[in-house]
Nucleic acid binder design. Structure first.
Length: 442
DNA sequence: TCTGGGGTCCTAGGACCC
DNA sequence: TCTGGGGTCCTAGGACCC
């Protein structure tokens, strides 16, 4: 199993702006979100001023004025273009690669590729594009991410490149990293982990799998394995087909009138449908949603949504507009101060690929499942309960009955297991889990 | 007064079908 | 001690990512 590298552009949007304006070198720079509401990219100098990621612009006005911070609206055309240049350089360097986001890519590494090669690559990207990057190397995506973080945090010492290897050094590093810094662990999971006495990356890595499984679910167990060097998250060279396209905007101030919402929605439908057409796709579902301003604690909140499955694929603006308009009318209530309206075009399909819902008894093609492995996986999951064993299909187990269903989710194998407590008066309970990645690993 | 937009995956639970 | 089995589809929310 080969190692992976994570290449991550530093302060990407700010760096892009700098490439085209040398006067920005050495001064604090920030780039704003779509609506100019929040700060979403900060140069090192801006970070040093204490400007937090995602801060509302109006809260930082004073710092910006005082220190002459240069402020930019985002320019995604520019960033997309710069991203393509960086990615093409990376692609020339390695056999396999996954473009993970506009400013990040995972590389599959051959045996000959080490820290020295990464340094050279880094220098090349900087020389050819003007964009500084950091590179982390590890056995799994999570470890590469962690290595990258270390490289970035200690740029002088590491020269922007770090490889994490099994051993004391890795453990020392992990002991100094809080769980919340791990890829996939946000505020909430970090809090849950703290409740288990797991505070650092090292604690997490050494945690009991069953306990993590119970508390964080299949996602948590996957992360745990990744931290221990077992690949659960594969390199995805081909991006999977997009499942939906969303378009929404916040209003500058509260909006109450239906007509105003309709006007904004029309805009969003137009943008979303253009995008869908550009991908050569059709939508088979339309969702419309409304939101009041959740920052206004005193005001009544109302965040309804409504959607409809279409009988046939659609991607024309006019038609989608009609559908979205009807949905909006369905959820609109007067008397609320709305902050946002949006549309989601979902169930995207390619021309001719549409499979309408089948009448009962019809057969839809499902992905092939290895039932033995799945049953095995379920048994493992149930291992800590009483009377856990199922062999195949469905059967009663003491007071517990397990029903296994299979369902293709278009993403590989998924399994739904239903468990009933059969004592009268108790309701059935269903739990659904995605075994795919874990089975792959285990 | 202002406090983003666009995605993914997972889980829970319910309605409904024969 | 008793307990139906096998399905589909949908909504809604939580959590994370960049």
């Amino acid at each position: 199993m080969g190692r992976l590298a994570l290449v991550d552009c530093n302060n990407f949007f700010c760096s892009c702006e700098r490439v085209f304006d040398p006067s920005l070198a050495g001064v604090p720079v920030v780039v704003l979100s779509n609506n100019d509401g929040c700060i979403i990219s900060r140069s090192e100098e801006a970070k040093a001023l204490g400007i937090p990621m995602g801060a509302p612009l109006h809260e930082q006005k004073e710092v910006i004025r005082k220190h002459g911070v240069r402020v930019f609206s985002s320019n995604y055309t520019l960033y997309g273009d710069m991203s393509a240049r960086v990615m093409s350089i990376l692609r020339d360097e390695v056999g396999t690669m996954e473009v993970y986001s506009i400013d990040e890519a995972f590389l599959g590494l051959g045996d000959g590729f080490g820290v020295e090669e990464a340094r050279k690559l880094r220098a090349k990207v900087l020389r050819w594009t003007g964009i500084p990057v950091c590179i982390g190397i590890g056995e799994t995506k999570m470890l590469a991410k962690l290595a990258n973080r270390h490289a970035k945090k200690n740029r002088e010492r590491t020269g922007g490149v770090f490889e994490i290897r099994e051993g004391v050094e890795a453990e020392e590093l992990m002991a100094g990293v809080g769980c919340e810094a791990l890829w996939g662990v946000g505020r909430n999971l970090a809090r849950r982990l703290a409740g288990l006495g797991v505070y650092t990356a090292l604690d997490f890595r050494r945690a009991e799998p069953a306990q993590i499984r119970k508390s964080l679910g299949v996602v948590g167990e996957r992360m745990l394995r990744e931290m221990n060097g077992t690949k659960c998250l594969e390199l995805e060279e081909m991006p999977p087909d997009r499942k939906g396209v969303m378009a929404s905007r916040s209003f500058g101030g509260p909006v109450e009138a239906l007509e105003e919402l309709e006007e904004a929605l029309a805009n969003h439908v137009a943008r979303a449908s253009e995008k869908v057409r550009r991908f050569g796709l059709w939508a088979t579902r339309v969702d419309v949603f409304l939101q009041t301003n959740h920052f206004r604690k005193g005001e009544p909140q109302y965040c309804p949504g409504a959607g409809i499955d279409l009988d046939e694929p659609v991607h024309g603006t006019a038609e989608l507009l009609g559908i979205a308009g009807r949905l909006l009318k369905r959820i609109y209530r007067s008397g609320y101060r709305y902050k946002k309206v949006g549309v989601m075009l979902g169930g995207l399909v390619q021309a001719g690929a549409f499979q309408p819902a089948l009448p009962f008894g019809g057969v839809r093609e499902e992905p092939r499942l290895d039932i033995d492995r799945i049953v095995d996986g379920i048994n493992r999951r149930l291992g800590d309960r009483k009377n856990p064993v199922i062999t195949r299909g469905s059967m009663g187990v003491g007071k517990m009955r397990i029903k296994i269903g299979m369902k293709g989710d278009g993403n590989g194998e998924a399994v739904q297991a239903r468990r009933w407590r059969m004592r009268s008066g108790m309701k059935s309970r269903a739990y659904t889990t995605n075994w795919n990645q874990l089975i792959q690993a285990g």
